[in-house]
């Protein structure tokens, strides 16, 4: 990997020759709009690329957005490329829907502490793009209002798209986070589960000497088939026996009953609490200690007291309102 050095500007080129775009490209418009700007140009497969300095990025993008000849109003893509020892490269793809022209804007970022000025003040959609670039590459964006992780776990602090981040070890920090959590909130130890696990570990593995069908002798195969047939037969017999018993709770035949009386205005208006409470089967009272605070720990008297107090409060409120209305 080589680097083509130009005063104050550098871009890793991977050994390729930087091809200049043809005259009349969008770079000329930028040259007119920003005469003092020092930049390189490159012709890529589809777009004209401009390589600028990191500190010029925001100015160039804002100019592209506002200049009537450019009108690069559409930030279609933003990402970064990790060139390892040569640093991080940031890439913006901008497009003008009016002039049908686009540009790829690139800059090399500070290798020690990669940072760039946020363009979320120009593009509302840039917030998510910058949040993604921040978590994936560790680029700090100055002026980004929301710097939380977007795609990764909230409290995870890794930058997976850096080449230094190995593919397999991605599990490690996540495992560490889980371990921290478990340490802070240890799960309750259940003696019966521990005992069952110990017993299972001590017991011989039934699968250890299990043979596949291909490895079996004809006798073993015949025995296996017999066993399976028996099991199927047992299941069928069991099902037939259950069917013979009939349904577990036979439904009550209600065909002869009289239809329920339709509700009238009186029954609807009357408070339905008392008859309903009488009809409903009594719920077994849960032991108060098991439930703790809450409805379950109230006695029936306490509940009735609360309901009565609530009704009184509502009546008072109603009277107050009626008074205000002048009734």
């Amino acid at each position: 990997m080589t680097t083509q050095d130009v005063p104050n500007l550098a871009i890793p080129t991977n050994g390729r020759e930087r091809e200049e775009p043809p005259p009349g490209s969008i770079a000329d418009l930028f040259r007119e709009a920003l005469p003092a700007l020092d930049f390189l140009t490159e012709r890529t497969k589809l777009d004209t690329a401009m390589i600028v300095r990191q500190q010029d990025l925001h100015t160039v993008i804002a100019t592209g957005l506002r200049n009537p000849d450019l009108e690069l109003t559409f930030l279609r893509n933003m990402t970064a490329v990790d060139w390892e020892e040569n640093g991080l490269e940031i890439v913006y793809h901008l497009y003008s829907m009016r002039h049908h022209q686009g540009v790829a804007l690139k800059a090399m970022l500070d290798a020690e502490a990669p940072h760039a000025e946020s363009v979320s003040d120009l593009f509302m959609g840039a917030i998510w793009m910058e949040r993604e670039a921040r978590e994936m590459f560790g680029i700090e964006f100055e002026g980004l209002v929301d710097a939380r992780n977007l795609l990764l776990d909230e409290d995870i602090d890794i930058h997976p798209l850096l080449k230094s981040h190995p593919l397999a070890e991605i599990e490690k920090p996540q495992g560490a986070a889980v371990a921290d959590f478990t340490k802070a909130y240890p799960p309750p130890v259940r003696e019966d589960v521990v005992a069952a696990q110990a017993a299972a570990a001590a017991a011989p593995d039934p699968a250890a000497d299990r043979k596949s069908v291909d490895e079996m002798t004809p006798e073993e195969l015949a025995e296996r088939t017999e066993r399976h047939t028996e099991r199927v037969r047992d299941g069928r017999e069991l099902a037939a026996a259950r069917r013979a018993q009939g349904p577990a709770t036979p439904m009550k035949d209600r065909s002869g009953d009289a239809p329920p009386a339709p509700p009238t205005a009186d029954t609807l208006a009357a408070p339905a609490a008392e008859p309903a409470a009488a009809a409903a089967p009594a719920r077994p009272a849960a032991p108060a200690a098991a439930i703790g605070i809450g409805e379950g720990s109230l006695t029936d008297e306490e509940k009735a007291e609360r309901v009565r107090a609530g009704r009184e409060l509502a009546a008072a409120r109603r009277a107050e309102l009626a008074k205000e209305r002048g009734e």
Binding site: T13, N14, G15, R16, T44, K45, L46, D47, R76, N77, H93, A104
Partner: peptide, 9 residues
């Protein structure tokens, strides 16, 4: 592919 880049859409 030769060293280079493309943003295909």
């Amino acid at each position: 592919p030769e060293p280079g880049e493309i943003y295909w859409r």
